[in-house]
Computed example of a mutant assay.
Amino acid sequence: MASAAAPAAGDARRKTACVTGGSGYIASELIKMLLQNGYAVKTTVRHPEDTEKNAHLKVLQELGPLEVFRADLDEEGSFDDAVAGCDYAFLVAAPVALMPQNPEKEVIEPAVRGTVNVLRSCAKAGTMKRVVLTSSTAAVSSRPLEGDGHVLGEESWSDVDWLRANKIGTWAYPASKVLAEKAANEFAEANGLSVVTLLPVVAVGAAPATELHTSVPEVLSLLSGDDAMVDNLELIEKASGGIPLVHVDDVCRAEIFLAENQASSGRYVCCSLNTTAIELARFLAAKYPQYKIKTDRIGHLPEKPRVRISSGKLADEGFEYRYKNLDEIYDDVVVYGRALGILPY
Rank of each mutant, 00 (worst) to 15 (best):
Q290S: 14
Y291I: 12
G266T: 06
I329K: 08
I256M: 11
V219G: 06
A281K: 08
L273Y: 07
V219L: 13
Y288T: 11
A339P: 07
S265F: 09
S264Q: 05
E328L: 13
E328M: 13
I236W: 10
L245N: 10
V248D: 07
G242T: 05
Y330G: 02
L314E: 02
G299S: 15
K294Y: 05
D250L: 05
L273H: 10
V246F: 10
L223A: 01
V219R: 01
L326D: 09
A228Y: 13
L220D: 07
F257T: 00
S311M: 03
I243K: 02
S224F: 02
F319D: 04
N274I: 06
Y323I: 04
G242V: 07
V230W: 00
E218K: 10
A315F: 10
D249P: 06
C271H: 01
I293Y: 03
L326T: 08
I309E: 04
D316V: 09
D250R: 05
Y323D: 01
D250M: 06
F283S: 09
E234A: 09
V251Y: 04
H300T: 12
I329P: 05
F319P: 02
A281V: 08
N261T: 15
E237P: 00
L235E: 12
K238R: 13
G312E: 15
I329T: 08
D231R: 08
A281G: 14
Y330I: 07
F319S: 00
D331V: 12
Y288L: 12
I329S: 03
I236G: 06
E260P: 04
S311R: 00
V248P: 05
Y330C: 03
R338Q: 15
G312I: 04
D250E: 09
R322F: 10
